[in-house]
């Protein structure tokens, strides 16, 4: 049961159904990529998993290592071990990255445990070095005035510090130049291992050259229509989505 199991998930936004009986299982230790055309519901999936209140779950179940997370508050889901790297991270003026991560870690302390600042800073600096984030960023406000690429790196930094069991990375590669892409991919690859399951949402094969997925899923109109190995991503890169649309089951398609 060490997996992220999504069963027949139906999600609506303002009464419009976006996810349609979406099912997918990501075992811990594996990296799964989801690809699919714009507007097909990839970010909706990520936000619904994370418990965003605008994304109404009208049916289905989600289990995180066997624990049902549908209906839980976003912070509970986070502490249960699900991390989401946002496609568009929010800015939090006046709150430094260091204090933000510190607050997030403090929220995870067990009763009687205390926060250990020296160890925290040591680890924070290590991870920042790894992700090639300048030390001066610790005292900058979360995402405020960051470039697109800096925001994405900051998401991965948070992930590295929070050590989730599962991570959904929503287009973490978009907005990154080729060097930054390698840095972020290195960061994710370092975390890769038996203790982490990753759901990688991307449009580009490029990222998958650096983070080689165990499985690739093609999403179309609110559900998965094809699954396969890394070669599937190459086919998409070469041929686009038209063949997917044709292969999609009846009723799917805009």
């Amino acid at each position: 049961m060490s997996n992220l199991e999504i069963k027949n998930l139906n999600v609506s936004i303002n009464g419009t159904q976006i996810l349609k009986d979406f099912s997918l299982t990501v075992p811990k230790g594996e990296v799964h990529a989801i690809m699919g055309p714009n507007g097909t519901g990839k970010s909706t999936l990520a936000k619904a998993l994370a418990g965003h209140e605008d994304y109404e779950i009208t049916g289905g179940e989600v289990f995180l290592d066997g624990e049902q997370i549908v209906g839980k508050e976003p912070d509970e889901i986070s502490r249960a071990g699900l991390f989401m790297a946002f496609q568009y991270p929010s800015e939090i003026p006046g709150v430094t990255i260091a204090n933000f991560i510190r607050a997030a870690l403090t929220a995870r302390l067990e009763e009687g445990e205390t926060f250990k600042a020296p160890a925290f800073y040591k680890e924070l600096y290590e991870k920042m070095d790894l992700l090639k984030i300048d030390r001066s960023f610790t005292s900058r406000s979360v995402n405020e005035g960051f470039s697109g690429g800096e925001k994405k790196r900051c998401e991965i930094l948070q992930m590295a510090m929070l050590k989730p069991g599962y991570a959904v990375l929503d287009e973490t590669d978009s907005g990154l130049d080729i060097d930054a892409l390698k840095v972020v991919a290195d960061g994710v690859n370092q975390m890769r291992g038996p203790e982490l399951g990753v759901l990688l949402i991307t449009h580009y094969q490029r990222l998958l050259n650096y983070i080689v997925p165990d499985k690739v899923h093609v999403m179309f109109d609110g559900r998965i229509v094809q699954s396969g190995g890394p070669e599937l991503a190459e086919k998409l890169e070469a041929e686009g989505y038209d063949w997917v649309k044709e292969a999609a089951p009846a009723g799917a398609g805009a």
Partner: peptide, 12 residues
């Protein structure tokens, strides 16, 4: 913003 912070584990 609140959702972002809650996604990191902070209660509302």
């Amino acid at each position: 913003q609140i959702f972002y912070m809650m996604q990191r584990g902070l209660p509302e």
